[in-house]
Simulated scan of single mutants.
Amino acid sequence: MSESRPAGADRPYRVMVVDDSAIIRGLITRWLSQEADLEVVASAANGQAAVAMVKQADPEVLVLDIEMPEMDGLTALPKLLAARPGLRVVMASTLTRRNAEISLKALELGASDYLAKPESTRSADAAIAFRLELIAKIRALAHGLRTRSAAAPAPRLATPAVQTSRLSPREPVKLRAAGTARPRVLLIGSSTGGPQALAGVLGGLKKVRPGLPILIAQHMPATFTAILAEHLGRASGMPSAEGKDGDPVLADHIYVAPGDHHMQIVDTNGERRIRLTRDPPENFCRPSVEPLFRTASALYGAGCLALMLTGMGSDGLKASRTLVESGGTLIAQDEATSVVWGMPGAVAQAGLCAQVLPLAEIAPTLLRLIGRGTP
């Protein structure tokens, strides 16, 4: 199960596990201890105990359960972040609507990521998937924290900002000219850190509607995506929901790819509509950014305006290349304001972006490109 040690992991990443189930704590501790680059420095059965020991344990990443006695995860979260500044917290919970709501609230309060626990660890496939995803998230967040610590101090941001660059300097990003056609659709890909970033960007479009349909592929399980859509509707003031198979693609409406489904745009008798599929995952993801960007490029061509926000991995890279080669325009979130600069970093370093911007500058830039902002 072990993977090669990432660049910069010269000593094990320090992890703390907080869960009221002794079985789950033991299982996660055993999994992580089998990885050469991970070390479990402490564990606790509730939030109160975690707060008492976090400063001395000094973890880089903390896996935090939601439902616990004495002090639950949501109550403990701000206390943990205050006691250990810079701590990266992964919320872990069973997949219920209530826990999905709490997880999204935790992201607003400073958690870095979330993870849905399998309903039963007796299912070998579910347990393996949970294990692999947990380890990948811990590595990405801890590596990014060390990279930021090794770099020059960055300004304080409203949401946690983590860089995931190598410790060696990067090559300068090469930009390309933006497309010249008027945008007709806005496409967004995001993953780790995406809910916070999406709310920030779409909230910036609230006063001046873009006049375009907005379609989002965010890596999230079912249940979470429905609640995310509701949150984005409140942030933007626009109708927002999970995309449904056959939905017409309407301007100033937000469509979020539902968990465990790919979302595409198709032409049905001259009308643009949404198609959902359960095709195999792409880049280990479903929903994936690839089908959304790929099918939109085929229909809208140079009318595509795309945005790649914070996220692990490189999902969307291949379709982004097709999009810009078709005359579309791609923008990426910059490294300093990304929770993980994987997806936006991949397209930026491939030279596909017209601009690479801090989160706060993205909404005004989108409006200018659409022709609804101040020149």
Rank of each mutant, 00 (worst) to 15 (best):
L62G: 05
A257N: 08
I28V: 15
L81Q: 00
G342R: 01
G351K: 10
D252N: 14
S297R: 01
R321W: 07
V201M: 05
L132S: 13
R372F: 07
T295F: 00
R166G: 13
L81R: 01
P12V: 11
T337C: 11
L187S: 06
S297H: 03
L205R: 05
A151S: 15
D315C: 12
L74K: 06
R131T: 08
T147V: 07
D113N: 11
V347A: 10
A76L: 09
H261L: 13
S240G: 07
M343T: 04
V208H: 04
L74C: 08
G345Y: 06
G373W: 03
P6E: 02
Q349I: 00
L276W: 07
A197I: 09
Q56A: 15
M312I: 14
L250Q: 07
S21M: 09
V173Q: 03
A83R: 04
V18Q: 03
S112V: 06
M68G: 11
G144R: 00
G203Y: 11
K105W: 00
L132P: 06
A298N: 12
A136D: 15
R273V: 00
M312R: 09
V256F: 06
R184A: 04
L132R: 15
R156Q: 14
I102Y: 08
T29L: 01
T329Q: 04
I28P: 13
S314I: 05
L307Y: 03
P6S: 10
G189K: 10
G259K: 01
R25E: 06
S4P: 08
A161M: 11
M220F: 05
G301T: 05
L62V: 10
D37Q: 12
L357W: 02
A127Y: 10
S236Y: 07
A181L: 08
V63A: 11
H261K: 13
A257R: 10
Q48E: 15
P375W: 10
